[in-house]
Design a protein around this nucleic acid. Sequence first.
DNA 1: ACTGAATGATACTAAACTTGTATCATTTAA
DNA 2: TTAAATGATACAAGTTTAGTATCATTCAGT
Lengths: 130, 130
Amino acid sequence: MKLITREVDYAVRALAAVARAGGGLSAAGLAGPAGVPRPVLRKIMQALSRGGITRSSRGRGGGFVLARPPRRISLGDIIAAVRGPLKFNDCVFGGALCHNHRTCLLRGRVAAIERKVLDEVRRVTLADLS
Amino acid sequence: MKLITREVDYAVRALAAVARAGGGLSAAGLAGPAGVPRPVLRKIMQALSRGGITRSSRGRGGGFVLARPPRRISLGDIIAAVRGPLKFNDCVFGGALCHNHRTCLLRGRVAAIERKVLDEVRRVTLADLS
DNA sequence: ACTGAATGATACTAAACTTGTATCATTTAA
DNA sequence: TTAAATGATACAAGTTTAGTATCATTCAGT
Ligand code: FES
Ligand code: FES
């Protein structure tokens, strides 16, 4: 039951490195020091760019920069970009027609807990993590 | 990223049924109405008994009863019995010798969030869910 | 005693998700 | 023109979750 997957952890460390560096960093430059397989980091950085957390420049000398200051990038943003939006309360029967949807005993409670967790992960920013 | 797995959901519904029934209920008696595969429910009930949430009696006429009143059975207890203790912050590198353990940026933060979630799931009791 | 209904314990298969790998296309600076 | 970089995808391997199958053990009723 992981809140933080390995990819999220990689993402956080990579972003922290980018923040430190100031300038742009390439995936290769990030993977090496962090001990992350290069293709994996590439995939993660691509997700972060798609999610609007970094901006990328292609071609020779290209790389990644933060799209906004560290203080405005939250752990929640990072999780959302890498794994998709945090959803604790997805119906355990795969959505669609859940015959218990109305009488579900847990749905509301779990949704409430999810909201609190969301608050927490949004409160932690990259600035706190550097 | 599921806080509640299908098995936990099954467990909650089964326990609610046991609570309603007052007396003992067999796995067969529980599985049918809830629409859960019988062997699956059996496995879950066994886990709940091992976890001290229900007490079982074997043999003909046997079945399960709550080991304590619904108000004293929390969602946290149920999750722990069925899936093992809730751990959000397991080191994403599988524990052992994590070369980042000391410098890990996330560990403390995630542990704090985990504690809050634990508080929440412990606050919700079977009585609330029935 | 015997039988049948029930749980205890385990081993196994199948499906879903996470993690890591591999390619090819596109862009850009030198 | 070339080499270094990202974009986009497809694939393989590993891990976790979900479901199935068996056999052993207990116990009430006859
Ligand atoms: S199980 Fe589908 S909503 Fe609760
Ligand atoms: S990655 Fe191992 S402790 Fe953070």
